[in-house]
Design a protein around this nucleic acid. Structure first.
Lengths: 121, 121
DNA sequence: ATAGCATTTAGAGTCTAGTCTAAGTCAATA
DNA sequence: TATTGACTTAGACTAGACTCTAAATGCTAT
């Protein structure tokens, strides 16, 4: 699969795909005889995972750490698990923060709708 | 209330408070005879709101837009309401995205725990 | 075989949201 | 009175995550 096709499939840019490869999040992707990238199924699975985690706010740095641990093999399993568990916690907190903000936002919108707006801002 | 007290109360830095004022998110805050900021109760309520929305990911730009509309008075009520409703939608989508990612993360952790890890990454 | 578009690289530039620095003012304390 | 520490400003700097540019090369269609 070409970079363009992958970019379209996952709704990201060619630049971002090359960038992720440069920083070591994916690949190195195989290239054909004329130096053009040809993404494998496994590349695609990784990209999907990375994209999903990025969209949830996990940093490139932490994902890179995970990828590097994975590359080191089975001896890093427990460490990888702990890394993921930490990110899970952070993510849960973030979702809670956002849900609280959402509730406030809804409340404020309700004040607008019922014209009971007596607030600062 | 001094800038330091406000910063402590809301767990942010003096710099951020001055920055928010500079870009017009809050204030201008009253200053005493020697030029030192003295935050009013109303300032505090705004800061709390801004902080909450920022923590949910609303951009400075959009919050500035809202603040500016508010400053223009009652004629902008409906526009403000629509702005908030749009942000509500975006926020709901973001929470959904993050919840989906969280589920994947939990699933992967489960694979680690049960040692059924047969995955790419 | 020439045009025109896609791909490659290295490296520079951009955007957001702060964060830090320098130079100065002020009030309180030793 | 001298020093200390908090505050002020304007403006430079930073981090993170891309995004864009230039110059070279390759693929496809005419």
């Amino acid at each position: 699969m070409t970079i363009k096709e992958v970019a379209e499939k996952f709704n990201m840019t060619n630049d971002t795909l090359r960038y992720y490869e440069k920083v070591g999040l994916i690949g190195p992707v195989k290239k054909n005889s004329s130096g053009i990238r040809d993404y494998s199924d496994n590349d695609l699975r990784r990209i999907e995972f990375i994209k999903c985690m990025r969209s949830a706010g996990l940093s490139i740095e932490i994902l890179k750490k995970y990828v590097d641990l994975y590359a080191k093999g089975d001896s890093t399993k427990l460490e990888r698990q702990h890394l993921l568990e930490e990110e899970q916690e952070k993510l849960e907190e973030k979702i809670k923060t956002m849900t609280d903000a959402l509730d406030k936002l809804k409340y404020k919108i309700e004040l607008y709708k019922t014209d009971k707006l007596d607030e600062y801002l």
